[in-house]
Structures are given as structure tokens and as C-alpha cells.
Design a binder for these strands. Structure first.
Lengths: 118, 118
DNA sequence: CAGTTGATTCGACGTGTGTCAACATAGACG
DNA sequence: CGTCTATGTTGACACACGTCGAATCAACTG
């Protein structure tokens, strides 16, 4: 369970989910899948953990580096699991510590959705 | 309550909230404010309503045009209120119908957060 | 092997959220 | 003024979610 691939929620995580919001409305199915990603970033603790990983040097961060967010360590683990299930983070165990890194394609897909009309 | 400005949550909705996630981690306060916006899009129904408004011709949509999302009308109204409180939508009553339109600056700020390293 | 530290899982609790039915409000139209 | 249509609000309910303490698993160290 500590392997890199642990997100069965997204069938093809690399493919851009949908065109920008300004182009066409989402279908019911698309909205369910996409809302999962936005919901994952809809919690202050998760959002902060995600930004910590994203901005950490080397693009990855050990749990021990980002555990200081004001909640208990089990709660941190819980939120990291949620982010992993949403496809936004991947984890890898190297010896004692577990390292998390962002999934660039998924983040790019979210950013593409918010692209203005142009 | 049907005026265009109805979002006291964001002090300066135009100013970009924060630098991209890849630059520096969010502070506790920033994460709370930003998570509100992501959480607003974290529900399938809201996400679909938002995409319907964003993709509608003229950049605005009447409630009657977007009410067909599979939930009751009070629920639609509830979700539109949430989106308005998050600063993502604005509403205006013109005669019989109420029109919603997206707040481009807030959406752009969210997209900027997801901008990759470049 | 025992012991220590890091990280996840389990069980439980309180709060928040999505949903609806029923009611209330706003404007149009006769 | 009365009535009809279009939105929004209220109250209530079930469920999900965030949080923690305790227990469990994993890897390094003596």
C-alpha cells in the first residue's frame, strides 16, 4: 500500500479531463470525477499540505517535513491519503521515510479547466 | 440580497490571492481563504452549475436555463448561493429572472495557483 | 532480538454538508 | 387587487467529513 500507484479513482490521470469551463458545460459524469479533485483541495489543511509538497525542493517532501500544520500526525496521514486518492499526490517509501510528490498532469488538467475564454 | 455584490468573504477579490503552489507554501490564513474557493467547486452539482454559467452565451445564464441538473430547485438555489458566497459567481435580477455570471478575476486567481513551475 | 522512531490504520465522536418538502418573497399580467 | 410563475429561504434529516487517541505496522539501531 506504500507503492507509487495508489489512485484507482482516475482511469487515465494524464489525459486532460475536460475542456475549459468557458467552452462547454460538464456532463454529470465529468462533474463527479472533476469535483473529486477540487474537493481534495477544499480543505485548508490539505491545501496547505499540497502547497508544501508542491513548493518543496526537488518536487518531493518527506512527511516529517510537512507534518507541522497544527493537527495530529494521524490526521496528516489521513489528508495525504485523500490527496493521493484524488490523484494529486503520489507516495514512495525510501527506507525510514515516505516521500510525497505532486502529479503534474492532474494539476495541469485542473488549471486548464480554469483557463479563461481566450 | 439580489444585488451584484454579495460576497463579503473575499476582501479584495481582484488581487491574486497567492503565488502558484510551486513557488511557496501557503500560510494558515491563506489556506483557509483559498480552500473556500476550491471547496465551492468540490461538489458535482455546483461544479456543473458553474460550468453551465461559464460556458453560456454572453457569459451569463438565467436560473431557468441551468436548473436541469437532477436535483430539486431549492437545492439548485442553495448551491448557487454557495458559489456566490465563495466569490465565484455574481447574480443580478432583471425582471422576472435572475441571471448569474462568473467572476473572472477569482477564477483566474485559482488558475494561477495551479500554474506549473515555469 | 529488543527497542526506538516514523507512519498508517482503527474506532469513535462532534460538526458540517447535501438534500428535500413546505413556506415565503418578488415580479408580471390580467 | 388577485393570481400565476420564478427564486429564495426555512426547518429537518441522513450522511459524509475532520479530528483525535490508541493500536498497529515498518524500518533503522544497538
Amino acid at each position: 500500500m506504500s507503492n507509487t500507484k495508489a489512485s484507482p479513482l482516475l482511469e487515465s490521470p494524464v489525459a486532460p479531463c475536460c475542456p475549459p469551463f468557458s467552452e462547454r458545460p460538464l456532463t454529470a459524469e465529468e462533474s463527479v470525477r472533476t469535483a473529486t479533485m477540487f474537493k481534495a483541495l477544499g480543505d485548508p489543511v490539505r491545501l496547505r499540505l499540497f502547497s508544501m509538497v508542491a513548493s518543496h525542493e526537488g518536487g518531493e517532501a518527506c512527511v516529517c517535513d510537512i507534518s507541522d500544520v497544527g493537527v495530529s500526525q494521524p490526521t496528516v496521514s489521513h489528508h495525504l491519503k485523500k490527496l493521493k486518492e484524488a490523484g494529486l499526490l503520489t507516495s514512495e517509501r525510501r527506507g525510514t521515510w515516505v516521500y510525497y510528490r505532486v502529479e503534474p498532469s492532474v494539476v495541469a488538467a485542473m488549471g486548464q479547466l480554469l483557463t479563461p475564454k481566450g
